[in-house]
Simulated assay, not measured.
Amino acid sequence: MTNPAYAKNAYISTDINNLSPLDLVIKLYDGAIGFLSKAVFSIEKKNRPMKIQYLNKTRAIVEELMSSLDMEVGGEVAVNLHDLYTYMLLELTRINSTDSVDKIYHIQELLRTLKSAWVEVKAIVPQSPATLRQHASIH
């Protein structure tokens, strides 16, 4: 009999491995936005351990987005994204100590704006592997 958790993880892994670089970036934004929603719910329920867990998951995603930036190829866009991600990481630290739901909403809005920009890039960029690698090199 197959372990359901194993099957789910295998499915998710296969799904992620089949994503283009742009799709992966978009999925990361979706994940961070979703974890922040769960952090808000945890704050409202006064569940500190869950809040910390979701803020840490969000932090991990933002750190992954930051570490995947190619500063040489991405130029000014990559520098600006790096600065924005640094700001988000600082705010996430502040949220952890203040439980500021407004700060969470602000970070979510920044993430939604960035996600929207990448969705637009995906819509106008030809989907050849070489082109995807070039555009994703910013990430």
Score class of each variant (00 low, 15 high):
residue 12 I to K: 08
residue 23 D to R: 04
residue 113 T to Q: 09
residue 89 L to I: 11
residue 11 Y to Q: 15
residue 138 I to C: 04
residue 97 S to F: 08
residue 116 S to N: 10
residue 60 A to W: 00
residue 112 R to L: 14
residue 99 D to H: 06
residue 38 K to I: 07
residue 129 P to S: 14
residue 12 I to L: 15
residue 51 K to P: 01
residue 21 P to F: 06
residue 105 Y to P: 03
residue 86 T to M: 13
residue 96 N to W: 00
residue 47 N to C: 01
residue 49 P to T: 02
residue 6 Y to F: 08
residue 121 V to G: 04
residue 46 K to I: 02
residue 127 Q to Y: 01
residue 3 N to A: 06
residue 42 S to K: 02
residue 37 S to Q: 11
residue 137 S to A: 13
residue 25 V to W: 00
residue 9 N to G: 01
residue 44 E to T: 03
residue 8 K to F: 14
residue 134 Q to I: 11
residue 119 V to S: 03
residue 116 S to W: 04
residue 17 N to L: 15
residue 13 S to G: 13
residue 5 A to N: 09
residue 46 K to T: 06
residue 58 T to Q: 02
residue 26 I to E: 09
residue 19 L to F: 13
residue 72 E to N: 11
residue 53 Q to S: 10
residue 2 T to Y: 11
residue 93 T to Y: 10
residue 31 G to K: 05
residue 3 N to P: 08
residue 118 W to H: 03
residue 105 Y to L: 14
residue 52 I to S: 05
residue 106 H to L: 12
residue 42 S to V: 03
residue 32 A to F: 06
residue 122 K to A: 07
residue 137 S to G: 04
residue 66 M to K: 11
residue 88 M to T: 09
residue 78 A to Y: 07
residue 4 P to S: 04
residue 42 S to Q: 05
residue 130 A to I: 13
residue 91 E to G: 07
residue 68 S to P: 00
residue 57 K to E: 13
residue 100 S to Y: 02
residue 122 K to S: 10
residue 124 I to N: 06
residue 14 T to A: 15
residue 52 I to M: 02
residue 115 K to R: 15
residue 70 D to W: 02
residue 91 E to K: 15
residue 48 R to V: 08
residue 86 T to F: 13
residue 60 A to K: 07
residue 13 S to E: 15
residue 53 Q to H: 13
residue 136 A to Q: 01
